[in-house]
């Protein structure tokens, strides 16, 4: 058996140890990204093998927390893919306006940039006051940042450009207060957002959503876990409700393909069909 195979055994054991000790289940994630992150952490910490890392993470919670940040990949931005938000404005918001009360679920919301983008859009469409937004992630560190709604000022220029391209109706600076190196998102955006801890790999459904967004999360899962999660979404979205995935993700290779129709295919906006099964 060569070193590669041995390393793969070590990696499998590491993921099992993480699951047994801390409850995070990475065993059905795409391996390449996990492996790369684990090797980089190995180098940074000067550990000699994945087995040594396993020992360390079992006894040292703070080490595990660092590794968790590596593995969860929290990169995000406001109005990422402006054309997606433009499509939401044009094709989804008019349908949502027919409801007197709305429930929206952001699954894998990371540090909240996407959620605040949605809150802004809902305000501009006159829907915010009748909406409850549930924003969830498995990583409590980023959820805390999301709750605070404080972002680094260095990205503001890009966010402002994204906002304008996404069909924004106001001046983006109306939505935050700048303080030296950071901005604080306006309080009025937060009132109807509930941030909470939810793990798509291990937790259950969230009821009767009119719109679910889960963008750039499924790319990290293998097909089996993708199917599990799309099943969760199927069960959580009301008939006729919307599901939005990331621009390189698709429902078409999953078990749930037939249960959803395209709304805007290239933007990965789908709608659950009205029939039961």
């Amino acid at each position: 058996m060569d070193d590669f195979e041995t390393q793969n055994i070590e990696l499998q054991l590491l993921l099992k140890a993480i699951y047994l000790k801390y409850g995070y289940d990475f065993r059905n994630y795409s391996k390449a990204s996990i492996k790369r992150r684990v090797f980089h952490r190995l180098d940074k910490e000067g550990l000699e093998s994945i087995s040594a890392m396993q020992h360390k993470l079992l006894y040292d919670v703070s080490f595990f927390e660092r590794l968790l940040l590596d593995l969860s990949i929290n990169v995000t931005e406001m109005f990422r893919d402006p054309s997606f938000y433009l499509a939401l404005r044009k094709f989804v918001m008019p349908k949502l306006k027919k409801h007197s009360f709305l429930k929206i679920w952001h699954a894998g919301c990371s540090s909240g940039e996407e959620v605040y983008s949605m809150a802004i859009l809902l305000k501009e469409e006159g829907l915010y006051d009748r909406t409850q937004i549930y924003a969830t992630d498995m990583n409590e560190v980023v959820l805390k940042q999301a709750k605070d709604g404080i972002f680094n000022i260095s990205k503001l220029k890009q966010y402002t450009a994204n906002y304008q391209k996404s069909g924004g109706l106001e001046s983006f600076s109306d939505y935050y207060m700048a303080h030296y190196d950071h901005v604080v998102m306006d309080k009025s955006l937060k009132g109807n957002i509930l941030f909470s801890d939810h793990n798509l790999a291990t937790d259950g459904v969230f009821g009767e959503m009119n719109l679910i967004l889960c963008r750039n999360v499924l790319i990290y899962f293998n097909r089996e876990l993708q199917n599990r999660v799309l099943g969760l979404f199927y069960d959580s979205v009301s008939p006729g409700g919307f599901l939005c995935l990331g621009s390189k993700e698709s429902i078409r290779f999953s078990k749930y393909s037939d249960a959803f129709e395209d709304v805007v295919r290239i933007e990965r906006i789908y709608r659950r069909l009205n029939t039961d099964n």
Binding site: A32, S33, V75, T76, N216, I219, Y220, K248
Partner: peptide, 15 residues
């Protein structure tokens, strides 16, 4: 763009 051991692609928006 990442390559998996089963010789398929995966994507990431990692930094």
């Amino acid at each position: 763009l990442l390559i998996e051991e089963d010789r398929s692609f995966s994507l990431s928006i990692d930094k």
